[in-house]
Design a protein around this nucleic acid. Sequence first.
DNA 1: ATTAGTGCAAATTCTTTGCACCCTA
DNA 2: TAGGGTGCAAAGAATTTGCACTAAT
Lengths: 138, 138
Amino acid sequence: MLHAMQDSPSLLRSRGLRATEPRKQVIAALSCGSVPRSPQEIFEAVEGAVNLVTVYRMLEDMEKAGLVHRHHPTGKFVLCPMPEQKGHHGFLHCVRCGKTEEFMEPALCKIENTIAKRAGFTPVSHLSAIDGHCAACR
Amino acid sequence: MLHAMQDSPSLLRSRGLRATEPRKQVIAALSCGSVPRSPQEIFEAVEGAVNLVTVYRMLEDMEKAGLVHRHHPTGKFVLCPMPEQKGHHGFLHCVRCGKTEEFMEPALCKIENTIAKRAGFTPVSHLSAIDGHCAACR
DNA sequence: ATTAGTGCAAATTCTTTGCACCCTA
DNA sequence: TAGGGTGCAAAGAATTTGCACTAAT
């Protein structure tokens, strides 16, 4: 997350997006605290410095670019800590404090592929979210 | 699913909900085709026979009762094929035709628990959805 | 200089709330 | 007949669209 905050311009450019002021601000807001945020919450976090409509459009672009992910079932957004890595990203989400961390676990992927195959499905993408209490909120 | 269609009244009553005409219609609509449906889509499926607002309230109640589940990331609703069974329910969803089936896989649960523990999380609930192409849409 | 990106205003769409009436158990 | 459910009207949120203007490359 920090790497994104420290150098959001190159992060953006590496994904084919221009490094604009609004985008840098939104990334900065998202990189604070590992908590998923809704468009409205991001808008408030930047204190209205970026238009809400722009936040919507931006998140759409950044999601396509793999820079942010939507956390389900909340539907909020988090910065992807490893945008270069392909594969199944999953979330660990604390229902008390909201802290959310992303993980990648090949073994989980493998089982999901097995389940899909068994049912005659050709898997394309996976989504998994684990809700619970984090160490601090135990 | 068929069992629900054939006897939605007892299904409803077994969960403490009254077997009303609107509810029977919504369950019938949901049990057709194993496709997740939004409140609006359900409203259209019953051809306006049930008020849209009622559909919303109903889905809320039925979800609490464990009769329907929300499918993520679409946010639409499906009838739960096994409301008696506890544990982690997951979805297999065809991105072409929309067909969605639910599964339960202890091995998946187990890995997710491991992931959570490893990160110091106490897991409370899991969500997983696999998108892909079903046998018919291959 | 180009063209992606942004802001503003306004339209849509989605979801919730309040309240009176109805119908299931 | 009592209380859970429903419909209707209306409010409130959330999300999208069009278009002119700005700014990054």
